[in-house]
């Protein structure tokens, strides 16, 4: 299975979330906050804190720690608050 994150292709081993893919690839953040423009990544890791948000196929506010990607998913960094496209 293969997805792209911010344009870069990533292979996804079975059973790995988007957050798992990104951390394994050496990234620790992939979102910026709405007010302070601060970087954020995984914090709670189990869907409680909503810190690890990404945009998946144009839909923002997806928790990377919970989302198991599907082949071909286009994932990108979320900049603050975004509207779906």
């Amino acid at each position: 299975m293969r997805i792209t994150v911010d344009g870069e292709p990533h292979d996804v081993p079975p059973g790995r979330t988007i957050a798992g893919v990104l951390i394994a690839a050496g990234r620790s953040s992939w979102r910026t906050t709405r007010n302070g423009d601060r970087p954020r990544g995984v914090f709670c890791g189990i869907g409680v804190c909503f810190d690890c948000l990404v945009v998946v196929n144009g839909v923002p506010d997806v928790r990377a720690c919970l989302r198991y990607p599907a082949d071909g998913d286009v994932v990108r960094t979320q900049h603050g608050a975004e509207l779906p496209t």
Partner: peptide, 18 residues
């Protein structure tokens, strides 16, 4: 970034080998 809850570290390590 890089500050994790203990549960996050556990979930990633145990569940995904990350």
């Amino acid at each position: 970034p890089g500050v994790y809850t203990a549960g996050a570290a556990q979930a990633l390590a145990k569940g995904q080998g990350v």
